[in-house]
């Protein structure tokens, strides 16, 4: 298993690890990752770190939320950025959807 404390080199520039950026013109879109029996836990953590720039601890927490709860909200952002994240998550082989923030 990978060293859980070791940093992972980023493959994609990341602007904000918390990924809570909403434009004034877009009320926001949630990016949801869904559980999958095939993707390795360590791989999901790596994807979260690589794509979103999350620290290992946060990436692991979100991965466990996906695993245990069946889904996890990994980002809330504007529509264009949400489309980008979902597309990259699909390329990585994760099951992800985006939902408009209600209200």
């Amino acid at each position: 298993m990978p060293d859980p404390d070791a940093p992972i080199p980023l493959t994609t520039p990341v602007l904000d690890p918390e990924v809570v950026t909403r434009s004034a013109l877009d009320q926001g879109w949630n990016v949801i990752v869904w559980d999958d029996p095939v993707n390795l836990k360590a791989y999901v953590v790596w994807v979260f770190q690589s794509l979103f720039g999350f620290a290992h601890e946060k990436a692991t927490r979100l991965m466990l939320e996906v695993h245990n709860e069946g889904r996890s909200l990994v980002a809330t952002t504007d529509r264009e950025q949400a489309e980008y994240y979902v597309t990259r998550l699909h390329i990585f082989g994760l099951q992800a959807t985006m939902e408009k923030v209600e209200g």
Partner: peptide, 14 residues
């Protein structure tokens, strides 16, 4: 392939 993927993850994790 799972073993291979773990090996790759170990490499990128340092």
């Amino acid at each position: 392939l799972s073993s291979l993927q773990y090996m790759l993850l170990e490499a990128v994790s340092g």
